[in-house]
Design a protein around this nucleic acid. Structure first.
Length: 480
RNA sequence: CGGGAAGUAGCGCAGCUUGGUUAGCGCGCAGCGUUCGGGACGCUGAGGUCGCGGGUUCGAAUCCCGCCUUCCCGACCA
């Protein structure tokens, strides 16, 4: 049968952007909100977010951070206190000028990030070195009035987690930056099954007000980069602006060293684009709302028996900790359900019909496998956790291989231009902003990061021939 | 903000060039029946300020003017 309007998406290879947009809507991850650029996260998409939250929150708390909640509104004056910070965010702020039927004396900013409100509070809460480190996190929504929006990847309002910490020394703050990177590294690798590059942002790409920004860069299936998490060393920039000071053991008043780090609902967009194919989503089991879907097949006299068997199989899967759904919608044909659950990225589908029941088997279709297999009904529940783990591992390996296959070391301008058209380019670079601009103008690619694990290397800049500046190769790519 | 495209039923579209009775089609939706191992079928039915405002005309989805919105490609960015 031909595709209908309700299922089936434009192939990735034909139009990646159309594929992405259609998939988000048709898989019922999200819908558009009534205000431009806003997004309704539907239950299927929100469940993924809840699973991400659970995994990340656990890691954040395990390292001594505590959750809190700070206000949505920021007095305009607060934001102005850190000059670079306000310059960085000014163009994309939503400002409330009227409330309670009157014009406000001081406009209120809807937070684009919370360094300033939290900094103001930290200043009041921190008096002594005994109050440090102060390790805090909040789960919140923020608003950035971006010119161009895309569901999950760049929405006007988005959900995220932002960690904010204050430390007595630069060394402690520097270590905290990496602790946070560790959360993200684990989450992205072990849960999202995405192979990423981790490294420092170049000065031009740093967070507004940061001395150092570390980012995780994943590769999407069109070869473009997506930043999936960032961690900033804010030095004493914010503590100076907000007077976050403490008295040291020696009785000296000193500035705190602060950090901030965040990961957002954008990661969901990353999962879609890192794993999805022409048939739809491919969800990593650790973050899949349903890890297994059971499709009962049968009608008339067979139906009751099949439904009973499906329910009991679902119960056994639940007992071993598997998130499972029985698709017992009776008005839809099995074939329709197969296609729909593939579109929605469920890792494993179990088909259970009269033939299976008679043979004591169940038909298993894994989302990435070419062929279905028959599995003993009595064994499948016990096997499933291992099968899901294997699926998770295979997905990560596929992501890693894809990234390596689409990454090249380049030493000349032509090689650089060629490489960023299909993936990542590792290039020696001079660090000259003008040279970065020239690359960007010609290719739309930007420096993504200077990877931690790249070997030491010196030589001429691949773009302009001047001496390299970072001591190792920089990753250039077109980015979302 | 620059460049492109589009607003007609929940979704996807046709109709507009050349104005003319009741605005169509597919999917979806509801009811009944038959189906169900890869996107089922029949019959019946519901569903519309044709983006908004103004103009031309006996008559506007269709022609003219103005406005709004959305989407796509860039610049800005998690």
């Amino acid at each position: 049968m031909a595709r209908t309007n309700t299922l089936g998406v434009t192939p990735q290879s034909e139009d990646f952007s159309a594929w992405y947009n259609e998939l988000v809507l048709k898989a019922e991850l999200a819908d558009r909100g009534p205000v431009r650029g806003t997004m309704i996260i539907r239950p299927y998409g929100y469940r993924i977010w809840e699973l991400i939250q659970g995994e990340l929150d656990r890691r954040i708390k395990a390292t001594g951070h505590e959750n809190a909640y700070f206000p949505l509104f920021i007095p305009e004056g607060h934001l102005r206190r850190e000059a670079e910070h306000v310059d960085g965010f000014a163009p994309e702020l939503a400002v409330v000028t009227h409330a309670g039927g009157k014009e406000l004396d001081e406009p209120l900013i809807v937070r684009p990030t919370s360094e300033t409100v939290i900094g103001e509070a930290f200043a009041r809460w921190i008096d002594s070195y005994r109050d440090l480190p102060l390790l805090m996190n909040q789960w919140a929504n923020v608003v950035r009035w971006e010119l161009r929006t895309r569901l999950f990847l760049r929405t006007t309002e988005f959900l995220w987690q932002e960690g904010h910490t204050a430390h007595a020394s630069a060394e402690e703050a520097a270590a905290e930056v990496l602790t946070a990177v560790g959360f993200y590294e684990e989450l992205v690798r072990d849960c999202a099954a995405m192979s990423v590059i981790i490294g420092d942002k170049t000065p031009g790409e740093r967070f507004a007000g940061a001395d150092r920004t570390v980012s995780l860069e994943a590769m999407m299936r069109d070869g473009r980069a997506l930043q999936t998490g960032t961690s900033h060393d804010l030095g004493t920039n914010f503590s100076r602006a907000f007077d976050i000071t403490f008295t040291s053991a020696e009785g000296v008043v000193e500035l705190c060293h602060t950090t901030s780090w965040g990961m957002s609902t954008r990661l969901i967009g990353g999962i879609i684009m890192a794993h999805g194919d022409d048939r739809g989503l491919v969800l990593p089991p650790r973050l899949a709302p349903y890890q297994v879907v059971i499709v009962p097949i049968g009608r008339g006299d067979d139906l009751a028996g099949v439904l009973d068997a499906a329910a009991s199989l679902a119960a056994r899967l639940q007992e071993v900790g598997v998130r499972v759904k029985v698709d017992d919608r009776e008005q839809l044909s099995p074939g329709f359900k197969f296609n729909e659950w593939e579109l929605r990225g469920v890792p494993v589908r179990l088909e259970l019909g009269p033939r299976d029941l008679a043979a004591g088997t169940v038909t298993l279709a894994a989302r990435l496998a070419e062929e279905k297999e028959q599995v003993r009904l009595a064994d499948i529940a016990a096997e499933m956790p291992d099968r899901l783990t294997a699926f998770q591992d295979a997905l990560l390996e596929r992501s890693r291989r894809f990234r390596l296959e689409h990454t090249r070391n380049v030493d000349t301008w032509d090689e650089l231009v060629e490489a960023v058209s299909t993936g990542f380019a590792n290039a020696l670079h001079c660090a000259d902003p003008a040279c970065e601009d020239r690359i960007k103008e010609a290719t739309t690619a930007t420096p993504r990061c200077v990877p931690f694990d790249a070997p030491d290397e010196q030589g001429p800049c691949a773009a302009c021939g001047k001496p390299s500046a970072y001591g190792r190769r920089v990753v250039f790519a077109r980015a979302y």
